[in-house]
């Protein structure tokens, strides 16, 4: 699906926290939003979903395959969120309901949508568990979130996001809370599933190395403004804006690389 964000401006009280941000993610595109904390990248994602906190007010336009989402009635937004846009957030600990089984949560979007029988719902949950490579899908659907590791919980979150084969996936720091080896596995899985589904992707992160591995185009945000955009490789190799240059320099000073550092 094509996502077009036009002149998105978000105000909280009299403060402008996102200022006239525009970008387009073509069908099947891989788009990265990057910036430090307070740059407005997470608010931009929430605005696309119509999930801005109370008191935040968005103007501009968010078009999904040409259909306006900004200001659309909640009923319609809820339907779009479930079926056409999948989301994965940073913390799988809080994204899952501790009192419900993994299977119930994996199948929740399907259950809300339609009249699936109990057996069919369970079969779907097992299929999704297998899709995100959870161990022993036939049994893991009966487990509860606390019985899973952090990486496994994030796989469940990805499974829920993919349940209805959405055309657009929004991921906000989905691997930041994970260990490096788990992060590599989850990113690899995510990358493959997004490709298989042919979905468009908006990926939010402050980690340039992760971004470089998963997106093609990037938009750099700073204090609510878009300061630079372009192909990831080009932006990393030759940043034009001082903010981008500082981000890249900081990343090079702190991230792992052969032949660098002490």
């Amino acid at each position: 699906m094509t996502l077009e964000v036009r002149g998105l401006t978000i105000r909280i009280g009299d403060r402008t926290v996102v200022d006239d941000v525009s970008f387009t993610v073509p069908d099947g595109g891989r788009f990265g939003l990057i910036g430090g904390s307070g740059s407005g990248k997470s608010l931009t994602v929430l605005a696309i979903l119509g999930l801005l906190p109370d008191g935040a007010d968005a103007t501009g336009s968010v078009l999904l395959d040409g259909v306006e989402l900004l200001g659309a009635p909640e009923r319609r937004l809820a339907r779009v969120r479930g079926s056409r846009i999948g989301t994965v957030f940073q913390d799988p600990q809080t994204a899952l309901n501790p009192l419900r089984t993994i299977g119930r949560q994996l199948a929740e979007p399907l259950r809300l949508r339609g009249r699936l029988t109990r057996t069919a719902t369970r079969a779907e949950a097992v299929r999704l568990a297998g899709l995100v490579r959870l161990p022993d899908p036939g049994r893991v659907v009966d487990a509860y979130p606390h019985q899973l590791s952090g990486g496994q919980r994030q796989r469940v979150a990805i499974g829920i996001a993919l349940a209805l084969s959405p055309g657009l996936l929004l991921a906000d720091e989905p691997t930041t809370a994970l260990d490096v080896t788990t992060q590599a596995e989850v990113l690899g899985l995510f990358d493959r599933l997004v490709a298989d589904a042919g979905a468009s992707l908006v990926f939010v992160t402050h980690d340039l190395a992760v971004l470089a591995g998963i997106t093609r185009e990037v938009l750099v945000l700073s204090e609510g403004r878009a300061v630079e955009r372009g192909p990831v490789a080009q932006v990393l190799a030759a940043p034009q804006h001082p903010v981008t240059a500082a981000l890249v320099a900081a990343a090079r000073a702190t991230s792992f690389g052969a032949g660098e550092g002490s």
Partner: peptide, 25 residues
């Protein structure tokens, strides 16, 4: 030494750990 372990990891697990780190192009 950090330099040696990162340049020439001996244990397979260390190698796996190092290989998993996302890198800047």
């Amino acid at each position: 030494s950090a330099e040696r372990v990162l340049r020439d990891p001996q244990h397979p697990y260390t190698r796996e750990l190092i290989a998993a780190v996302p890198r800047l192009p």
